[in-house]
Amino acid sequence: MNHPDTSPQTGTDAGLAAVLRMAVGRLARRLRAQRPDSSLSLGQGSVLFTLARHGQPMTPGALADHEKVQPPSMTRIVAALEARGLVRRMRHPEDGRQQLVEITEEGTRLVNSDHQRREAWLTQRLTELSPEEKDVLRRAAEIMDRLSQS
């Protein structure tokens, strides 16, 4: 496929923002469709991924801050995950008034299975692209990561 560097839609920052938002949204939906356990809400899945990535227990307050939700919402998310055996709560060793939440082995297996399925799907899609298109995506991925951090 031969695409010009700019099109009428992407010739301005606002146009590029609109096209990028739609493309990223569609790709995110396609990746979400690959989830092995679609009964988890997006919030529950996000909390599991955060706990797995963090690598150690977190307080519900720290999870709420990280996920940009109110503490009562996090309480409901953690309770639902705990009921499914994907996380467990424990007393905070230094502050008995607080609890810590940690991912269980079952939760870790679910996160790993999710990563494997999504990456396998995306890897398969990448085989459909030319080497030049893959190079563009490598550069774009770095830029998008930088944008997501700002």
Rank of each mutant, 00 (worst) to 15 (best):
Arg76Ile: 02
Leu81Val: 07
Ser41Arg: 13
Thr6Ser: 10
Leu42His: 14
Glu102Cys: 10
Met58Val: 04
Gly43Pro: 09
Ile143Leu: 11
Ala141Glu: 00
Ser73Thr: 15
Ala18His: 12
Ser41Pro: 10
Val87Phe: 10
Arg88Val: 08
Arg84Ser: 07
Val24Leu: 14
Asp13Met: 10
Gln124Arg: 15
Arg97Lys: 15
Arg53Ser: 10
Val78Gln: 07
Leu122Gly: 07
Ala52Arg: 11
Arg30His: 09
Thr127Trp: 05
Gln56Lys: 09
Met74His: 04
Thr75Ile: 01
Pro36Leu: 14
Ala17Arg: 13
Thr6Asp: 03
Pro4Leu: 07
Phe49Ala: 11
His92Cys: 06
Asp5Thr: 07
Leu42Ala: 15
Ala28Gly: 11
Lys134Val: 12
Phe49Gly: 10
Lys68Tyr: 05
Thr75Asn: 12
Arg109Ile: 02
Gln149Ile: 02
Val136His: 10
Ala14Phe: 04
Ser41Cys: 13
Gly61Pro: 01
Gln124Thr: 15
Arg138Cys: 05
Arg91Pro: 01
Gln98Trp: 12
Val111Gln: 06
Gly55Leu: 01
Arg117Pro: 00
Met74Val: 09
Leu137Val: 06
Ala64Arg: 00
Asp95Leu: 12
Ala80Met: 10
Arg146Glu: 09
Leu100Phe: 13
Glu82Thr: 08
Leu16Trp: 08
Arg29Ser: 06
Arg21Tyr: 08
Arg91Ala: 13
Leu147Arg: 06
Gln149Ala: 11
Glu142Thr: 00
Glu128Cys: 11
Gly61Phe: 11
Pro71Asn: 06
Lys68Gln: 12
Leu122Arg: 07
Thr123His: 11
Glu132Gly: 11
Pro8Val: 12
Pro72Leu: 02
Ala62Phe: 01
Gly15Gln: 07
Thr75Gln: 14
Asp37Val: 11
Ala23Gly: 07
Asp65Gly: 04
Asp95Gln: 14
Arg76Asn: 13
Glu133Ser: 15
Leu147Gly: 02
Glu133Tyr: 05
Ile143His: 12
Lys68Cys: 04
Gly55Val: 03
Glu94Pro: 00
Leu86Gly: 10
Asn2Thr: 12
Leu147Ala: 11
Pro72Ser: 06
Gln70His: 15
Lys134Gly: 02
Gln149Pro: 01
Leu42Gly: 15
Thr12Lys: 08
Pro71Ser: 08
Ala141Val: 02
Leu147Asp: 00
Ser73Gln: 15
Asp145Gln: 12
Leu137Ala: 03
Arg88Asn: 08
Val101Arg: 04
Arg29Ile: 08
His54Trp: 08
